[in-house]
Design a protein around this nucleic acid. Structure first.
Lengths: 213, 213
DNA sequence: TGCGAACCGTACCGTACGGTACTGATCGGG
DNA sequence: CCCGATCAGTACCGTACGGTACGGTTCGCA
C-alpha cells in the first residue's frame, strides 16, 4: 500500500485535494443552502468528477458527514490555562468566551451546517444532529466547563450543578438569537451588538453565581 | 356569490375541508419530515386531488404558508389578566409561562414547522421564517411582555429595557434545549424535566430582576 | 518508453417530484 | 329532470437529482 494517504489534513484521513473539495462544498452550502448542494454542483465547483466524489465519500450523506467533520476539525478551541484567576480576569475570560460563542454561532458555515442538520433531523434519525452536537457543541462546552470549574476552585463562583450553571450562562448569552439567525434574520446588523450583549450576559451570570463581595 | 366561504375556520379564510387537508399535511410533516411533504402524498392522505390543492393554495409554498397560518391560528395564547399581582402570584404566573413555553417549543408540530422553515431559510429569503416568527413567537412574547410590565407596575420587578429582561427570561428558560430538540435529540425524556427547569429559571430571573425584599 | 492507476468531463439511467390536463362522479338549484 | 359547478382519481409532462459507466488525459514508476 506504500503511502495510503499522502497528506493528512487536520486530523481527518483526508487528502488535501479532498479537503479542497469539501471547502467548495461548504461554500456552495453557505451560498445557496441545501438545494445548491448537489453532487453535480460540487463536482463542477471543485473541478472534480462525480465519480471521484462517490469513490471518496461513498454517497451524498457520507459527503455531508465529511463536511461536518472537516469544518469541526478546523475550529479548534484553545483551552485558556486559567491559573491565577481573580474576579477581574474571570469576568474578562467569561466575556471573551461569550463573544466567541456568539461569533461562532453567527458564522456563515455554522449556520448553514446547523440548517442542514436540522432540515434532515427527521429523515436520518438525527445522525447529522448528533454529529454536529458532538463535534461542535461539546468543544465549546468543555471550554466553558473548565472556566467555570476554575472559577469555583478559586472561590469566585458558587454552584452545585455545573451543567445547570453552564445552561444559565449559555441561555443568558444566546437567548433566542441563534434561532432567529437560523430562521433567516439578517445576522449582519446583529453582530455589532455582540459586545454589549456579552457583557450584559456575563454580568447577569456573575450576579447569579458569583460569590458576594 | 351567495356564500363565499361556507364555514370560516379559526379566523383564516379556509373551508373546513381545506382545514382538514392542512391537518393531514401537518401530520405528514410531523411523521416524515419535509421529504414526506409531497403534493401527491398530501392528496393521497387527505383524499383530495392535486388539482384541488393547487386551486386552493396556489403552489407548494402557498400550501406550506397556509399550514403555518393554520397551526398558528389554533394556538391562541390567553392573556392572563394580571391584576392584583403580588410576589407569590407573579412567580406562579412566570412559572406557568415558562412551562407553557417549553411545552410549546417541544411540541411535535412546532418542531416540525420550525425545522421546515429553517431548512428553507436560505432558499426563499426566509419568508417562512419571518412568518413563523410573527405568527408564533410574537404571540408568546407579548404575553411575557404583559406579565413583565405588570410586575414592574406592581413594584415587583425592576428593569429599564423590557426586551433585555425578556431576553434573559427566555434564555434562562430555554437555554439550548430548543436547538437540541431541533437537531433531533429525543424530546420524550426531556419533557419530564420541564417543571424543575421552569422553576429554576424563574428563580434565577427573579433574583436578577426582582425587587429586593 | 510503456504500463497502470487515478481522475476529469460528460453522457447516461432510473426515479421522484411539482404542476397540469382530462374524465367521470356527486350534488344543489331551477 | 336536467345544468353547471365542484372535486376525486389518474394519467401525463418536464425537470432535476442521485448514482453509474465510459472515453480520454495526466502522472508516477519500472
Amino acid at each position: 500500500m506504500a503511502v495510503a494517504m499522502r497528506e493528512a489534513n487536520a486530523g481527518e484521513g483526508l487528502t488535501e485535494r479532498q479537503g479542497a473539495v469539501l471547502e467548495q462544498a461548504l461554500r456552495l452550502l453557505v451560498d445557496g443552502g441545501e438545494k445548491a448542494l448537489t453532487t453535480a454542483g460540487i463536482a463542477r465547483a471543485a473541478n472534480c468528477s462525480k465519480e471521484s466524489l462517490y469513490k471518496w465519500f461513498g454517497d451524498r450523506d457520507g459527503l455531508i458527514s465529511a463536511m461536518i467533520g472537516f469544518q469541526a476539525s478546523k475550529v479548534r478551541t484553545q483551552d485558556v490555562a486559567a491559573r491565577a484567576l481573580d474576579a477581574e480576569s474571570l469576568k474578562r475570560h467569561l466575556i471573551v468566551f461569550a463573544k466567541d460563542l456568539l461569533e461562532v454561532l453567527a458564522g456563515d458555515v455554522s449556520l448553514a451546517l446547523n440548517r442542514l442538520a436540522i432540515g434532515q433531523a427527521s429523515r436520518d434519525g438525527s445522525k447529522l444532529g448528533h454529529m454536529l452536537q458532538e463535534r461542535g457543541r461539546r468543544q465549546i462546552g468543555r471550554r466553558a466547563a473548565a472556566l467555570l470549574e476554575a472559577g469555583r476552585k478559586a472561590g469566585l463562583l458558587t454552584f452545585d450543578d455545573a451543567d445547570e450553571a453552564y445552561g444559565a450562562l449559555y441561555g443568558l448569552i444566546v437567548s433566542d438569537w441563534h434561532l432567529k439567525m437560523l430562521l433567516g434574520e439578517e445576522a449582519g446588523e446583529m453582530k455589532k451588538g455582540f459586545g454589549r450583549k456579552a457583557e450584559q450576559a456575563v454580568s447577569a451570570f456573575l450576579s447569579l453565581y458569583g460569590t458576594k463581595r
